[in-house]
């Protein structure tokens, strides 16, 4: 088991390095510079600015400088937000995305698994159809339609909840963004859970358990739920990373100060250092979660380990 974990994590380092390298050179190759604007800067001013950010050095030298600083945990200054370093910006924005993401994630899993299970138990009844139709709607409706709809209903018409803002994450500011974010993944998880639960319920050992006359509650909670969660678990890795990074839409609509907004703005502003920093954070997260899910899977299902 330990060997498996070590092996899994050993892949992470080169992966990250490849990711950094690709992103770094991709941005170097991109047209446009962080310092172009409506007014073309006089060359001597441009020269001063480039010198400040080491952009006057050869590309490979910039690359190793960056890696060197990265090893020290320094992501460099932001090119666009001149009062901040990338570390400052991430320190401020990451907890925001993490908070919304984590809450949305918990809700997603609890509600998704519950309604998926209910639908499976009431298979082919009206309830099942309603739940599944709703879930399908959640899957196919883009979040940039859901989010403004929520704002229109709950903030403008009913005036129950704020239309946006963060306000240090007080609950009333969290409800709408979390809902918007959770809907899509909740729907996916409900669908996955439903079909895997049906499969489990049809399996021989559950039939045996039922034949033995065990009460339903015991059968479901003790014997069915755990094995039926396997496919859901495999979906959690991508879902979690997706929720955290996927805040792009929700953060834009609700004006939240998280990493999603930074990423899009960063790419548009050619804020190389900020985008690289974010890529590294998100890359590490993705790698970490894929690894955790793999390990979790190996724990639940020993067959995986020997493949």
């Amino acid at each position: 088991m330990l060997k498996f974990i070590i092996k899994r994590l050993a892949v992470a380092v080169p992966t990250l390095l490849v990711l950094i390298t690709i992103s770094f050179f991709l941005m170097q190759a991109a047209p446009g510079s962080p310092f172009t604007g409506e007014r073309n800067l006089p060359p001597e001013i441009l020269k001063n600015i480039e010198a400040k950010y080491n952009l006057d050095k050869p590309v490979w030298q910039q690359y190793f400088l960056y890696l060197g600083n990265l090893a020290k945990g320094d992501l460099g200054p932001s090119f666009k937000y001149r009062d901040y370093t990338v570390n400052d910006l991430l320190e401020q924005s990451f907890p925001v995305s993490l908070k919304i993401g984590a809450i949305a994630f918990i809700f997603t899993v609890i509600i998704g698994v519950s309604i998926g299970t209910i639908a499976a138990l009431k298979q082919n009844t009206i309830l099942d159809y309603i739940i599944m139709a709703l879930a399908m709607t959640g899957v196919v409706l883009p979040s940039f339609v859901i989010a403004p709809l929520l704002v229109m209903i709950f903030s403008i018409t009913l005036q129950w909840l704020p239309a946006g803002g963060w306000n240090e994450g007080t609950w009333e500011y969290l409800i709408l963004p979390v809902t918007a974010m959770a809907i899509m993944y909740m729907a996916s998880i409900a669908r996955i859970q439903r079909s895997s639960m049906i499969e489990v319920l049809n399996s021989n050992y559950i039939r045996t358990a039922r034949a033995k006359g065990l009460p339903w509650r015991t059968i479901i909670l003790r014997h069915s739920l755990r094995p039926s969660l396997l496919p859901v678990v495999s979906y959690l890795g991508p879902a979690f990373v997706g929720i955290i990074t996927g805040s792009v839409v929700v953060e834009t609509v609700f004006g939240l100060p998280g990493i999603g907004q930074h990423f899009v703005n960063g790419a548009l502003n050619r804020d190389y250092s900020l985008v690289l920093g974010l890529t590294i954070i998100i890359g590490s997260l993705t790698i970490l979660f894929t690894a955790i899910v793999d390990i979790l899977y190996a724990v639940i299902d020993p067959k995986i380990r020997y493949q």
């Binding site: 005036q159 239309a163 004006g255």
Partner: peptide, 18 residues
């Protein structure tokens, strides 16, 4: 001072009294 890049979102927040 509220930086809201999307004009539609900004309008929504104006309407909501924020």
């Amino acid at each position: 001072y509220l930086p809201i890049p999307s004009a539609t979102s900004e309008l929504n927040r104006y309407k909501a009294g924020e």
